[in-house]
């Protein structure tokens, strides 16, 4: 990698000031960033290492309303093992954290680092290629090239997929995030962290330069809510999801009362599927119903030349997720 100034902030305001400087890059565990720096597709002049704030930003706190407040630097391993996430309502988050990468990565990777990853598209992540999303080429190379792991929906001029597996789970749980920009703090819906229209020229997230996500909020879930997360892969050990699904459901009196459904790894952004989820409302859980919902979730899919399989696999994962919740 290129030489850079390494900054260990002593406080959040100090980090915010450093992060606002031109050429500065925030780093949490660095699992994504260091790879890109080694490949020299990212050459920051300053790296602000947030891990020096770990004492302040790593926690899982139960709020008074039984929601959760999770510090930005909380590791995936902590998420998987913390008793507060043991409840069935938070199943999706626990499962997504526990399925990511390898134990070594989970011991280090952070919740917000996972949400803010840059796409794993092999064209973007190689210095040898210049593509539109990387702002080094005129077009999306995967659109007409090798695209077996790319988007099947929600794309415009770039078919990258959003790589976070925590994002669908947190969206299904109606999560919010707090960020710090300069001395201003704001709390917004997590869905606002991702661009509405996933254009090539837009980043994977909507944060402004220097803006630091400090916490994730998982609000109190509806009574009797249960949630789950499932993903498909090509192998069970360390692999990136080919499709993912998170859902949260409340079943009362044998009927589904509320439902959320979010797809992952199929589009440049995590994809909430409210219309498909609506089909569940008022119905009794059944395999037939779940297949109908899965079909609806993928109704808008327009697969590329090499990823037609993702539609079938993705539907299976929706079906499996819904079964996992209502079992």
């Amino acid at each position: 990698m290129k030489p850079f100034t390494y900054i260990l902030p002593r406080s959040l305001p100090e980090a915010a000031t450093a992060a606002a400087r031109k050429g500065a890059q925030l780093k949490a565990a660095g699992i994504d960033l260091i790879d890109r720096m080694k490949e020299r597709i990212e050459t920051p002049s300053e790296v602000v290492n947030l891990l020096s704030l770990k004492g302040e930003l790593s926690y899982i706190k139960s709020e008074r309303d039984s929601g959760l407040r999770i510090g930005a630097l909380t590791t995936l391993n902590d998420l998987e093992l913390d008793a507060a996430l043991g409840a069935a309502q938070f199943g999706a988050l626990r499962e997504a954290a526990g399925r990511t990468a390898t134990p070594l990565v989970r011991n280090r990777a952070t919740i917000v680092g996972n949400l803010l990853q840059v796409t794993r598209c092999w064209y973007l992540r190689s210095a040898a290629f210049g593509c539109l999303h990387g702002k080094k080429g005129p077009a999306c190379l995967a659109m007409t090239g090798e695209n077996r792991y790319h988007s099947v929906m929600g794309y415009f001029d770039c078919v990258r997929v959003h790589p976070s597996n925590l994002a669908p789970a947190l969206l299904a749980l109606d999560a919010e995030f707090t960020s710090q920009l300069g001395d201003r703090q704001s709390r917004r819906k997590l869905s606002e962290l991702f661009p509405k229209e996933a254009r090539a020229m837009l980043a994977e997230h909507t944060l402004l330069p220097g803006e630091i996500v400090t916490a994730i909020h998982v609000p109190a879930q509806p009574a009797n809510a249960r949630s789950a997360y499932r993903e498909s892969r090509e192998k069970l050990s360390f692999d990136w999801a080919t499709t993912a699904c998170a859902a949260r459901i409340v079943v009362e009196g044998g009927k589904i009362r509320t439902a959320t459904l979010v797809l992952g790894a199929v589009a440049p952004v995590p994809m909430p599927m409210p219309e498909a989820a609506k089909l569940l409302i008022g119905e009794a859980p059944s395999d037939e119903l779940f297949q109908k919902v899965a079909n609806a979730a993928y109704q808008s899919a327009v697969p590329l030349s090499q990823n037609v399989y993702k539609v079938q696999v993705g539907k299976a994962v929706v079906r499996e997720t819904l079964h996992a919740i209502t079992r």
């Binding site: 390898t102 794993r120 092999w122 064209y123 190689s126 040898a128 290629f129 190379l141 090239g145 090798e146 077996r148 792991y149 090509e234 192998k235 069970l236 050990s237 360390f238 692999d239 990136w240």
Partner: peptide, 28 residues
């Protein structure tokens, strides 16, 4: 699992790492 995937236009291997060149892991 294992297969070399090439970008036909450039002639360059796309999965020349252990993230996308898939080698069996212990759970498998």
């Amino acid at each position: 699992y294992e297969q070399r995937l090439m970008d036909k236009r450039s002639g360059r291997m796309l999965n020349g790492d252990f993230l996308r060149y898939k080698v069996i892991g212990s759970i498998d």
